[in-house]
């Protein structure tokens, strides 16, 4: 059996320290059945500073941030904020990505996330055919969901030409500012 690691105190651990493991978050979570670690187990791992276990489980990526857990938490812990920070940490850290995000569902989720954002960056909104095409190419699963294409086309749900929003330049500046801010923060 693995001993409890004693890691250094950090901001997230301080936020997690209030958790007394009542399990109300896990009880209400609509995606709990898909998670390898339940919400309260994730909080426990966080209290111990066991980030390895947190990133190894799929829970961070299954969570849809519906905030049911957070709204019910009797200790008023900002659970979703904690998870967002955990995801951002991984996203900003190539080393962590190599360790935890090179295979399986996590890789696909991260890929989709990146392609989605680059799509938004280009058009200011989603252009579905391009999103699907790039995702299928890069994930290697070329014909994923391809059979749904024709019926979506017939119903007019898939536009043939992209639509750019007005003021795309200003919009893209937001992205650049975020990048700049990230670079500053290191």
């Amino acid at each position: 059996m693995q001993a409890h690691p004693h890691t250094e105190q950090d901001e997230l651990k301080v936020m997690g320290a209030k958790c007394y493991q009542c399990g109300k978050c896990s009880a209400g979570c609509p995606l709990a059945s898909q998670m390898e670690l339940s919400t309260s187990q994730m909080m426990r791992q966080l209290q111990l500073g066991n980030y390895d276990a947190i990133y190894r489980s799929n829970s961070l990526w299954v969570c849809v941030a519906c905030e049911t857990c957070q709204s019910r938490c009797p200790q008023e812990i900002k659970i979703v904020e904690i998870w967002d920070t955990l995801r951002n940490r991984l996203f900003a850290d190539k080393k962590l990505q190599r360790k935890y995000a090179t295979k399986g569902a996590v890789r696909h989720i991260l890929l989709a996330h990146k392609i989605f954002l680059s799509n938004i960056y280009t058009f200011g909104r989603i252009f579905e055919p391009m999103l699907a095409a790039i995702y299928n190419l890069r994930s290697g699963d070329l014909f994923k969901d391809a059979s749904k294409g024709p019926s979506l086309l017939v119903k007019g749900k898939l536009p043939l030409l992209p639509h750019r929003i007005n003021g795309i330049k200003e919009f893209q500046r937001i992205f650049k500012n975020v990048e700049k801010y990230r670079a500053q923060k290191g």
Binding site: G23, A27, A32, S38, S40, Q41
Partner: peptide, 12 residues
């Protein structure tokens, strides 16, 4: 009643 068994880590 939707609860959790935190000892099992499962929803009940």
């Amino acid at each position: 009643v939707k609860g959790a068994d935190t000892l099992l880590g499962e929803q009940v």
